[in-house]
Amino acid sequence: MAVVNEGALKKMLSKQYKYRDLTVREINNVIFHYKDLKPVMDAYVFNDGSSRELMSLAGTVPVSYRGNVYNIPICLWLLDSYPYNPPICFVKPTSTMMIKTGKHIDANGKIYLPYLHEWKHPQSDLYSLIQVMIVVFGEEPPVFSRPTTQPPFQPFQA
């Protein structure tokens, strides 16, 4: 696991994040508890086609479903106004997975939760959000494994 120290994190966020210290503190708390999430600066493409370098937390979270634990791949994008706006959250299916749309997930994998809708700093934070996701996904997983490829149908030949 790549170790991202606080200085490096602050440097990554220095250009545009208005509440950098708050954001760094929250990211550190999350990556301390969820070792399979890591902070990554990457280009986020908005609905209007514009893109911006934003901080994301990408990786997997452990979700318990029917007695087994699955590492569900997610990506949380932090706007430069974070924590005064909620993160934009997606499930990121691998090629062997398919999205299960529902009231919490759309066809693009975007995650909708009351916790995000009602986001308000400082009552809301990334660590609690992830805990909520883990509970919700444990009841309704956002991804399932794709069916294994069936052998091609062989027409009967006399």
Binding site: M1, D36, K38, N71
Partner: peptide, 14 residues
């Protein structure tokens, strides 16, 4: 590789 967990998902939804 960074050693993160391998993503996994429940068996196919039916």
């Amino acid at each position: 590789l960074n050693g993160g967990a391998v993503p996994s998902a429940p068996p196919t939804y039916t």
